[in-house]
Structure formats: structure tokens, C-alpha cells
Simulated assay, not measured.
Amino acid sequence: MMRSLLSSVLALCFTVGMVLSPASTAYALGGPLPPINQPAPEFSLPSNIGDRAISLKDYRGKWVVAYFYPKDFTSGCTLEAQRFQADLPKYISKKTQILGISVDSVDSHAEFCDSEGLKFPLLADEDGAVSKAYGAWLAPMSLRNTYIVGPNGVLRATFTQVRPVIHSAEVLQKLDELQPAG
């Protein structure tokens, strides 16, 4: 009993120390998150658009919303994609590119886009390497995390434990906060 209590107290102290330490790395369920206000991890992944790879650096000068999701055609992932698609004109007006990323294949992404009328690229992170770099990996799939990358390639915001039904609205609100007025 005493050993269990001591273990619990030590675990709590460690957790509090991790939260309060200014030099600590932020962690989510999928591992360490890339730091805010630092260059976002670069990537180049195959896409469902024109049989070509898409790289983060392709979008320098634009804002990027890179959203990671578990699997094409599942209820939560479909709802999240539908909400991003419904709000696509708002993202375009904010000079923001949406990129969906999961471990599904390019063929699965193409079918998913056709089925749901998605007009933004879905990228195939089949080995999970990019998901791991973004702290969005829980084998064998990507977690539902989203990252906003500024026009200069710097990570500006991170969303974990995303709720698909309201997530696009949350991202748009954060873009309003991050982007200069006018």
C-alpha cells in the first residue's frame, strides 16, 4: 500500500514538473509534439492529386492546415473531412491550404475524395514516418491531431484530442487569431 502511494505521488510530481518546466517538451498520446514557433517538420508524401508527391515546402507563402486522421471512410474521419470541405471557401479566403494525412494508400484517398466530394489533397503516410515526426502516431494509424503552419514554414498551433464535429470551426477561429487583420 505504502509503495503504491509513493509511486503515485512520484508520478504526480513528475507530471507536474513536466507541465511547469519551461524547457519541457510537449507530449500527446502519439509522442512528443513539434514545438510551436519553430520550423514545422518537413515532409513530402504521395497524394491523390495528379499522382504526385506534395511537400510542405510547396506551400511557402501560404498558411497550411495539416490534419492527421485515423482512416478513410470511418464515421469520425468522414465527418471531419466533410466539415473541412464545407468550410473550404473560408480557408481559401484566408490563403490557407488544407492537407489531410493518414496511413491509407493513395488509391483509398482517391476513392474517399470521390465519395465525399473533397477538393483538397489527402496524403499517404503509409509507414507513419510523418505522423511520428508530428507526434500523431499510435500504431498502426495516425491520431486525430491538427497543425497550423505559417507562410514561413513555422508551426503556429497544435490541436490534439480533436472533436470532428466542431474542429473546422476551431481551426478557422485560430487562423483569425494568428493572421493579421485586413
Rank of each mutant, 00 (worst) to 15 (best):
N145W: 09
T74E: 11
M141C: 07
K94M: 15
P35E: 13
S47E: 05
Y147V: 01
L79K: 15
L178Y: 05
Y134D: 09
P70N: 09
E42Q: 13
P89Y: 09
P164S: 09
D87G: 08
S21G: 11
I54E: 07
D127C: 03
D58I: 02
V106L: 03
F159M: 09
V19A: 13
N37V: 01
S105T: 13
L12Q: 01
G61A: 01
I92L: 14
R52E: 13
S7M: 15
I36H: 09
A181G: 11
N48M: 11
F84N: 01
G76A: 13
L118A: 10
E80F: 04
S108G: 07
R52K: 15
L29H: 02
D58G: 03
S7I: 15
L138C: 02
V64S: 08
I92R: 15
Y27G: 02
S93I: 00
I49Q: 10
S7V: 14
W137P: 02
L178H: 08
D125P: 11
S8M: 10
D176V: 05
S24L: 00
V9C: 12
S168H: 09
P35L: 06
E42C: 02
G135E: 03
N152P: 01
Q38A: 12
V103Y: 04
I166W: 11
K90A: 12
V149H: 03
D114S: 14
N152D: 14
A133H: 04
F159H: 11
R60H: 05
P151F: 03
K95S: 13
G31A: 03
G117I: 06
Q85E: 15
L143T: 05
S75F: 15
Y147G: 02
G100I: 07
A23M: 05
Y67F: 15
E111L: 14
N37H: 11
Q173P: 02
E42S: 12
S7C: 15
W137S: 10
S47T: 11
P121F: 06
A169L: 10
T160P: 01
D127K: 11
M2K: 14
K62I: 00
R52Q: 14
G30R: 08
A66T: 04
E170M: 12
G153Y: 04
L172A: 04
P39C: 03
A28I: 01
A181R: 06
L12F: 13
F43K: 10
V19F: 11
P22H: 02
L88I: 03
V9L: 15
T158F: 02
S115C: 09
M2Y: 02
V171K: 08
V149R: 02
A129N: 12
Y69V: 04
G135S: 05
V165F: 00
S75A: 14
P41M: 00
L155P: 04
I54G: 06
F120G: 10
A53V: 01
Y134G: 08
T146Y: 08
V103E: 08
A129E: 14
L143K: 02
A40C: 07
I98K: 13
A129K: 15
P121Q: 06
N48T: 13
A40D: 12
L45I: 12
T146W: 09
Y147M: 05
M2D: 13
G182R: 12
H109W: 05
G182F: 09
D114T: 13
P89S: 09
G76M: 12
L20E: 10
F120Y: 15
G61L: 03
D58V: 01
E111K: 14
T25D: 10
S102H: 08
